[in-house]
Design a protein around this nucleic acid. Structure first.
Lengths: 248, 248
DNA sequence: TAGGATAGCTACTCACCAGTATGATACAGC
DNA sequence: GCTGTATCATACTGGTGAGTAGCTATCCTA
């Protein structure tokens, strides 16, 4: 607790979150090429550290993973890990960001689509499910406020909220354009996200289904609902643009 | 790791799981009444310990809660806590059991019902949701294999699996009796349980909705599905016993 | 009223682990 | 070859927290 923030190494201002966009000087044969290569090397190694951390957190949990474990997995020593990230918390945060980024990008992509809200939601949920089933899914889903400093916690909360609000918006739009059955957007968003988030608890690689397949199966459940449909096929084929005045 | 199990106090053979069944001699005015009262006292205190642990785990997480914290909350010292439970892991396990028991009991109750499988499932899920939103919900849902010894882990897994299988069975029965839309029972059970489990992540007491209300809202989402229903009301009123031959 | 069980406390031990001080090596640029 | 910076290791510190040793007090039974 009490967030013992350190002075983040005086010299090189740590790259922090950003993907350190190839720090100028590309690799076009210039005399600086070597230094550019170094920077790229560093970035690659940094990502390896984050990936190793995600893997370890995934399998043993955040608290049961020591930085020595992560270092050992990379066959380096602990200070080497600290050379690439400033502390354990930041490591979790980076994993979180790596996990959530694909979802944010899915929202952006979908925004350009000219389909019914339900179809757009479907696309987003598909990416969501895949992200949760990815290596970073666990970190994304399980990054607990409890384990993080207030600053990190707030940052993560806002990112999560962004996703939540995006889903709610699609739901509202769907109810309006008649492609989604009238519902409470808040509760429905919680139910959808919850089901998908939970994948991180039981899914492990090498399972019989891929993340995409699971997401598809879940979406089918969400869309149809438990109550039998008199004519599921017919309703399906209308592509969502059905009469939206279902009840009163 | 490596489970540094200690030798579990030689003297008093810890009560372990059993509810310490009122050690003979009831409480019917006999000279042993006092001792019976003592046993009851002990049981009450033990339950208070478990409840305090659940509360602390709930708010701060398992790893961020020390037994000193729990002791402090009860205004006793740490060894006193150890007087009632043998270790921290067992504490988590007891919380888990307390959380999952209502769900098991819901299955038992429902078994006697003479309704369609969907209605029975609905009842189970209602209790499930309420259990997850209870004080023990967090412990039930978040008891991680990673944090427990292999024995505990196996025990918990089997209890969880029992619930999962129960839901799948109701789904299969529902598809057969026509009260549930044809679906993959495994994936559907994962989706349903996942959505409900996730409640433990966001729900806190003093929220605007009660556990029962949330469960009801979720069930409505599950039942209707996202695709609009041509005649939701009509389908609803049939109480589930609709023509089961929806699609081939 | 002695003796044993019950219930609780203070004050420890011991292991683990995040994070660091310090120094060694490799390599780039001069 | 010389100097500064990047990269990594060994070996430490300091704090935290699970679990315990051993003592005290109280209550029950004989």
């Amino acid at each position: 607790m009490a967030t013992s923030r350190r002075k983040t190494a005086p010299g090189r201002a740590a790259p922090e979150t950003g993907p350190a966009g190839t720090s100028a000087a590309g690799a076009r044969g210039s005399p600086w090429r070597a230094s550019g290569e170094r920077a790229r090397d560093r970035q690659i190694k940094r990502e390896a550290v984050i990936r190793a951390a995600a893997h370890a957190f995934n399998h043993k949990g955040y608290h049961n993973t020591s930085l020595d474990d992560i270092a050992a997995a990379l066959k380096v020593s602990k200070p080497t890990v600290y050379y690439y990230v400033s502390n354990k918390e930041q490591l979790l945060f980076e994993c979180f960001v790596a996990g959530i980024e694909p979802i944010r990008s899915a929202f952006r992509k979908v925004r350009r689509l000219k389909a019914s809200a339900r179809v757009r939601l479907q696309a987003v949920l598909g990416h969501y499910g895949q992200a949760v089933a990815s290596e970073f899914g666990w970190c994304m889903v399980r990054a607990e406020d409890q384990d993080l400093s207030p600053v990190m916690s707030a940052h993560i909360k806002s990112l999560k909220s962004e996703i939540d609000q995006g889903i709610r918006r699609l739901l509202r739009e769907g109810v309006q354009d008649g492609s989604i059955h009238p519902c409470d957007p808040k509760m429905t968003a919680f139910a959808l996200a919850g089901a998908l988030n939970w994948i991180a608890h039981w899914y492990r690689e090498n399972q019989s289904m891929t993340g995409a397949q699971i997401a598809a199966a879940f979406i089918s459940v969400f869309e149809n609902g438990l109550i039998p449909r008199v004519s599921a096929e017919a309703t399906r084929r209308t592509g969502g643009a059905v009469a939206g005045r279902a009840r009163r």
